[in-house]
Amino acid sequence: MDSMLEAAIWFWIPLCLVPIGIWFSVSGQAKSIGKIIAAIGLVLVMISSWTVPSSDSTAGGHLLLSISAPSLLLAYGVHGMIFGGNVPVGRLDSSARWSGSLAIFVSLLILCLMHWYSFTPLWRDGEVNPYWIVFWPTFLLFATSLCSVSAVALASYGENRLNESINLAVLSVFMAGIALSAMIFDGYMTTSDEFRDYLWLATADVFGTIVGMSLAIAAFAIVIWAYENSLPLPEISPPPTEEEIKHVVSLAKNHIGGEEE
C-alpha cells in the first residue's frame, strides 16, 4: 500500500474523526456515538507511530501519547483547584483543592523529567520527537502568561479573590522559573540553546496570535460602527387619531373589569 494512503487511513482520517465525534457529542444529536467516534479517532492517532511508522506526520500522535498522562493529571488538578475553591456553582469538597494541587505538581514534575531526564519522548532512530521541543517552551510560555494575566484580573476585578490571585501568581512564578532553568541548563536530549530558539519562536507565535485576534476584533467593531452610522434615523410616528384613541378605549373597557367587594 502506498505510504500516503496508509497515512491517510491510519492518521489523517482518525484525526478528522476526533472533531466530528466531539461535534456529535456537543450537539446532542448522538452523544454516545460521538464520544465513541472521538475516542477511537484519538486512540488511532496516538498509536499511529506504530501503525504508520514511515509517515512523518505521526510524530504528533506520538507526542500526544507521550504527554497524555501528565495532561490528564494537569486537567484533573486544574478542575480540582477551581471547583474546590470559592465558586458559586458546582463546588467540590475542600479536599479537591489539595488533591488538585498535588496533581498539578506531579504533572509538572513529569514534564520536567521529560526534559531533564530519560523520559524525553524519542520518536524515530532514538531522536527527540520534533514536536516536543516545540510543545515544551510554548506550554511554559502560555501557562506563565495565562496564570499572570488571571492573577492580575482576579486582583483587579474579583471580589474576595485575593487568595486565588496569590496562588495563580505563585504558579506563574514557578512556571517562569522552569522556563528560565531550561534556558540555562541543558536537557537530557536537547540543549539550552535549542530551547531558547524555540522559546523565542513561541513568543513570536503567541504575540502574533494576540495581535491577530486584536485586529480581528477591532475590524469587526469598526464594521459594526460604520454600518450603524450609515443607517438613517428612524422616522417619528404621527400621534394617534381620535378614532384610534376611541378604538383603544373600547378595547380596554371590553377586556378590563372586575367585581367590587
Rank of each mutant, 00 (worst) to 15 (best):
L5H: 05
I9R: 06
I9T: 07
F11G: 00
P14A: 00
L17F: 11
V18R: 00
G21P: 06
I22D: 02
W23E: 08
S25E: 08
V26D: 05
A30E: 11
K31E: 02
I36P: 04
I37F: 01
A39M: 01
I40S: 07
L44K: 01
L44N: 03
M46S: 00
S48R: 00
S49M: 06
T51Y: 10
T51D: 14
V52H: 07
P53D: 02
S54L: 09
S57Y: 15
T58H: 06
G60C: 07
L63D: 13
L64C: 06
S66L: 09
S66V: 10
S66E: 07
P70C: 14
S71M: 15
L73F: 13
L74W: 15
L74Y: 15
F83Q: 11
G85L: 08
V87Y: 07
G90P: 13
R91E: 05
L92A: 12
S94M: 10
W98F: 12
W98S: 09
S99H: 14
G100A: 05
G100N: 05
S101N: 01
S101L: 15
L102C: 12
S107G: 15
L111G: 09
L111Q: 09
L111K: 06
C112F: 12
C112A: 13
L113V: 01
M114I: 03
M114L: 01
H115I: 08
S118P: 05
F119M: 15
P121S: 08
P121M: 07
L122F: 03
W123I: 06
D125P: 00
P130W: 05
Y131L: 10
W132F: 11
F135E: 02
W136F: 13
P137W: 05
L141C: 04
F142R: 06
S150D: 10
V152Y: 10
A153V: 15
G158K: 08
E159V: 13
R161G: 07
L162M: 11
E164T: 15
I166W: 11
L171V: 14
S172T: 13
A176G: 11
A176C: 05
I178P: 02
S181V: 01
I184N: 09
D186R: 02
G187C: 08
Y188R: 08
Y188K: 03
M189F: 06
T190S: 07
S192C: 04
E194Y: 06
F195C: 07
D197M: 10
D197A: 10
L199F: 09
W200A: 02
L201V: 10
L201R: 05
D205N: 06
I210Q: 04
V211A: 12
L215W: 10
L215V: 12
A216N: 07
F220T: 14
A221V: 00
I222T: 12
I222E: 10
I224H: 05
W225L: 11
N229M: 09
N229K: 09
E242N: 00
E243I: 07
K246W: 08
K246F: 10
H247G: 09
L251D: 08
A252P: 05
N254H: 09
H255V: 06
H255N: 10
G257T: 01
E261K: 14
